[in-house]
Structure formats: C-alpha cells, structure tokens
C-alpha cells in the first residue's frame, strides 16, 4: 500500500493486483505497471524508502 501511495502522489501509472503466481507462490499484492516505467518507479520508491522485494517483467492479460 505504501507503493501505491508513493506512485499516486507522484502521478505514476499502475495499480495494485493480486501477486501473480509467476512472481510468488501463495498470496499477496503487487504493483502492476508497464515495463518502460521501471526506471522512474525504482527512483520513486527509493526516494520514499519503500522496500522492493522483487521486480519482474511478465505478460498479463487485460480483459477490459
């Protein structure tokens, strides 16, 4: 939730999703955004002291 707060405050796109099984087995939350936003995202999270457990590029379906 700190990640969401950080990104929304800075106007960075993305949203919270259930953590995909390819990233971690079990349950939890992940921040979903476009791969090209990676650099800006990392800088923002570092600046706000939000810890990052993992960052993975995967293909996800968008239905609507």
């Amino acid at each position: 939730m700190s990640c969401e707060e950080c990104c929304q405050r800075r106007g960075l796109g993305g949203r919270m999703i259930p953590v995909p099984g390819e990233v971690a087995a079990g349950c939890g939350l992940a921040w979903k955004t476009a791969p090209e936003a990676r650099e800006e995202l990392v800088a923002a999270l570092e600046a706000d002291g939000v810890p990052v457990e993992a960052m993975t590029v995967i293909e996800l379906l968008e239905f609507r």
């Binding site: 939730m1 700190s2 969401e4 919270m16 259930p18 939350l29």
Partner: peptide
C-alpha cells in the same frame, strides 16, 4: 486489508496505511 486486490480490500489497506 492485505487479503487480495479487490476494491474493498485495497480500500481497507489504504485505511490501515
């Protein structure tokens, strides 16, 4: 809060944060 990413769950997470 922290149990899934439905709108209600995320709202709860925001309240807790």
């Amino acid at each position: 809060a922290g149990r899934g990413a439905s709108a209600g769950a995320l709202d709860a997470g925001r309240v807790v944060l």
